[in-house]
Design a protein around this nucleic acid. Structure first.
Length: 831
RNA sequence: GCGCUCGUAGCCCAACGGCAGAGGCAACGGCUUUAGGUGCCGUCCAGUGUGAGUUCGAAUCUCACCGAGCGCACCA
């Protein structure tokens, strides 16, 4: 016992040491599948993002775990059967880099850190069902990651293609689009990402683009808005049209050149075309005369990094391809150019350029002196370049069709219908979302279960041979060399083809670790099942997840991938719901002095130190109380010492209650009982709307009210016992050790956390009297104590009779009286 | 440039369209204490970023602007 503990009487660390083993023995939070399968109890599935084992837990973990635990514990108290599992996302690069540094196996680092984090989580007093613990790097787990990959491939949702891909020169591996930040750097290490042409595995996420987009509407209400918004932006749905131009090749002959445009209404203003310089199409159609210039330009653009390329400040450059195309509405021959401002991977990799209505095309046209035709009438005072606003169409007619005078929306519909009739185009929808590149040239991940055979090509590893386990490599074997380290394990690589029995080789890439985490919440359902990835009956019973809590950094990455996996699993017939996370809440960051905590700034706060100094409960309380969950917490603004003081005040109550357990609360004093029941009533609403910080404030009020009653000589009042028991119960959501200790001191058995939610006596929620405010012209001029069920006419009469109100009225004419019984009267005066 | 979210006491944050303050931190004062710390009691502090609008009434709804955070961005 520290000196401080001795003086205040509350032994923080002793209390922790006392209850932790009791809870381990009682296992109060084990989820009962049978109760849910039988329908005996309603289910709740609480999930928080599982951590990567990169060392011990830090403040960020502490926050999300504390928030998450409030809701899980609340559900238990409300009588639900709660599935609240935890595991580790344990494949990934840090372990591999540590293994190289220390000349060891990545598993050494990984599993040591898992044990450290597990111990810390246990001490942190969380309501996890530890019997469902999993690690994605266990062969028992990644066997099913591989199995799912094969299922996806059977449906054509996993495929290999050659394409320019994002390459991180530091991590020596390819990256998915989602892992490259907006500034062209690696999401993981910050290195500048370059491009490489490689044959890689992809998941066909684009096949689900429309559904992933549409379902966001139903998530709008229950997900935090900015995440839905981020996903909408990332999927990037746009409506437009495909338009076919006839391309005249240099050697004679024609071929169609299809473009995607969101502005088909401006087709009459298309004065040239641009093909992405790095698209194969550009090389195919380039005339011999322009070939040399084109190739020089193309090679130069390939060398440019994304950082340069993405700069919108950069002047437009390009080279003519020496061919022309026919504008289908004007019949004009327009030149075809190659440029790097058109992206090969978006749309068809070619555009119709309408400089009159598109600033990029305008810039290009002015740089190369190409014609500009306006097809939308700008306002008289418009003095910009391209006019991208709406207005009537102009210069847009031929013998067959005229758009002139139509507004943009009408013109679009008209021209699309016409193009469709002519067979020259069609309205279409396009997405920014690309397929998910899942291959990685690193060791510590799930091997891709494919065998390459010179005879049979790509062959799936037969299901009964899964998992394809990682070969034993360590230390220098794992050094990045631009190709997968697995390639060096020749005994592992060289196999016989499952189809023809001839010599063949394994695929040497591993899967992106985001694949592992895209389905872990299914594995929690039956984590020890060796016969299937998960039990569909349990998925039906427990799913979908009722609340998912995690960090914003996964707003598009993990959350989008997990949604994609869920939809595919549904189409595989394994589940019957469409979205994995019914509600999503993102927690803010824990910062210090306005800055992100970091070693270089020297402003890091050690979770372990805080726990040692103030105890688990005070740290948890501080994190929950500091702000709404999604706001950042600045550790400089909060007071764990203040939290500890409050816990001590609450704890002290439990020692001063002199009535016996089981005392009839009905005999207690009404004033305190009303506060108690109102607090319980409001607490439920506060938890369900995730306003945990306000919940804590309300418990503080209840403690204050109870203290006042005791000071007034009410220690034996049953209302004091009732209030203190409620404090213990509500506090168990946030400060489980203190709550359990209070519960015991009040004469009860553990665990307080599994006590049913206190019953609210509705009669106690009704006030005897309320203060009605009387306003004159919206300004408060008087107050009346009235019965809560006073009639509107009585209240109006009382208000008008009030001397203070009479004075304020000063004989003026009452024009109108608004009565909102029992709380408010507003008197409107004047002519 | 487009989009989403948010601006309330010195600070963190509350407030079904109806009295701007629930709770906490900090500060200050008192009591307790040899002292510091702890504890208890009390005090101080804003008219809600700015400007319009809707309304009997706006922190709350609408619009514009300013500022902050986040997402997307040469995506045609």
């Amino acid at each position: 016992m520290s000196e401080r503990d001795e003086q205040v009487g509350y032994d923080v660390h002793g209390t922790q040491a006392k209850w932790l083993p009791v809870w381990e023995r009682l296992e109060p939070f084990r989820a009962d599948d049978a109760a849910v399968l039988s329908g005996e109890r309603e289910k709740k599935y609480a999930l928080t993002m599982f951590p990567y084992p990169s060392g011990d837990l830090h403040m960020g973990h502490a926050e999300v775990l504390a928030l998450h635990d409030v809701i899980a514990r609340y559900w238990w108290m409300r009588g639900y059967e709660v599935l609240n599992p935890m595991g580790w996302d344990s494949f990934g690069l840090p372990a591999e880099n540590a293994a190289i540094r220390n000349d060891e196996h990545p598993a050494t680092y990984t599993y040591a850190n898992i044990e450290t984090q597990f111990t810390s989580m246990q001490r942190y007093g969380l309501s996890f069902d530890w019997s469902r613990r999993l690690h994605t790097s266990d062969p028992e787990y990644y066997k099913w990651t591989q199995w799912l990959f094969l299922k996806f491939r059977e449906r054509g949702l996993a495929y290999r293609k050659n394409s320019p891909v994002n390459w991180c020169p530091n991590d020596q591996t390819v990256l998915a689009n989602e892992q490259v930040l907006a500034d062209g750097t690696c999401e993981r290490c910050g290195a500048e990402v370059t491009k490489r042409e490689l044959t890689q595995w992809y998941f066909r996420t684009t096949q689900y683009a429309q559904e992933l987009y549409d379902c966001l509407d139903e998530l709008q209400e229950t997900w935090i808005g900015k995440v839905v918004n981020a996903q909408r932006n990332w999927i990037g749905r746009s409506e437009g049209a495909h338009v076919d131009f006839e391309l005249h090749l240099d050697g004679g002959g024609t071929r169609p050149l299809t473009v995607y445009t969101t502005r088909p209404d401006t087709l009459f203003g298309a004065t040239f075309m641009v093909v992405a310089a790095d698209a194969p199409l550009a090389a195919e159609i380039c005339s011999p005369a322009q070939r040399e210039a084109f190739e020089a330009y193309r090679d130069q653009t390939r060398k440019a990094s994304d950082i340069d390329r993405l700069s919108t400040e950069r002047p437009k450059t390009g080279v003519p391809l020496g061919v022309t195309a026919t504008n289908p509405v004007t019949g004009q021959q327009i030149p075809v150019w190659a440029s790097d401002y058109v992206l090969a991977e978006y749309g068809t990799g070619a555009i119709m350029a309408v400089p009159g209505q598109d600033q990029r095309d305008w810039d290009f046209a002015t740089a190369y002196d190409l014609p500009i035709i306006r097809t939308v009438q700008p306002p008289a005072d418009f003095d910009g370049d391209a006019f991208t606003g709406t207005g009537p169409a102009i210069n847009s007619a031929n013998e067959e069709i005229s758009l002139n005078g139509l507004d943009v929306a009408e013109a679009k519909a008209t021209i699309i219908a016409w193009l469709e009739r002519k067979g020259w185009g069609a309205g279409t929808v396009n997405f920014r979302l690309r397929d998910w590149l899942l291959s990685r040239q690193r060791y510590w991940g799930a091997p891709i279960p494919i065998i390459h055979c010179p005879v049979d090509g790509e062959v799936a590893v037969p299901e009964d041979q899964l998992p394809v386990e990682l070969p034993e490599l360590r230390g220098a074997d794992l050094k990045p060399k631009g190709t997968s380290p697995l390639g060096a394990a020749t005994e592992w690589v060289n196999v016989t083809c499952p189809t023809c029995g001839g010599p063949a080789t394994r695929d040497t890439d591993t899967m992106d670790t985001f694949v592992d985490s895209s389905w872990y919440f299914f594995r929690y359902l039956s984590p020890h099942d060796s016969t299937q990835a998960f039990d569909p009956a349990l998925a039906k019973a427990w799913g979908p997840i009722d609340l998912y809590i995690g960090g914003d950094e996964h707003a598009v990455l993990h959350l989008l991938y997990a949604r994609f996996f869920t939809k595919v699993l549904r189409d595989l017939g394994l589940i019957d719901w469409d979205e994995p996370f019914s509600a999503y809440l993102s927690q803010g960051k824990v910062i210090n002095n306005g800055r992100k905590m970091s070693k270089s700034l020297g402003n890091g706060v050690s979770l372990g130190d805080q726990l040692d100094a103030f105890g688990v409960d005070a740290v948890r309380l501080t994190l929950v109380f500091a702000s709404p969950p999604e706001d950042n917490i600045d550790w400089a603004d909060v007071s764990p010492a203040g939290s500890l003081r409050f816990l001590q005040r609450a704890w002290r109550l439990s020692g001063e209650v002199t009535s016996s357990p089981g005392a009839s609360f009905a005999d207690g004093s009404l004033d305190l009982r009303k506060v108690t029941h109102k607090t319980v009533h409001d607490a439920a609403q506060l938890v369900e709307s995730y306003r945990f910080n306000v919940l804590v404030a309300r418990v503080m009020e209840l403690v204050n009210a109870t203290r006042r009653t005791i000071e007034a000589g009410g220690a034996a009042d049953p209302a004091v016992r009732e209030a203190t028991e409620v404090v213990a119960q509500l506090l168990s959501l946030v400060a489980p050790y203190t709550a359990e200790e209070m519960w015991e001191r009040l004469g009860h058995q553990p665990t307080v956390a599994r006590q049913p939610w206190p019953t609210v006596d509705e009669a106690l929620l009704v006030e005897d009297s309320v203060t009605a405010v009387v306003q004159v012209q919206g300004k408060v001029r008087g107050r009346l104590e009235v019965s809560p069920d006073i009639s509107e006419s009585d209240l109006e009469a009382a208000a008008l009779a009030d001397p203070a109100v009479q004075k304020a009225l000063d004989g003026a004419t009452v024009r109108k009286v608004i009565v909102r019984a029992p709380k408010l009267v507003n008197i409107v005066i004047g002519a």
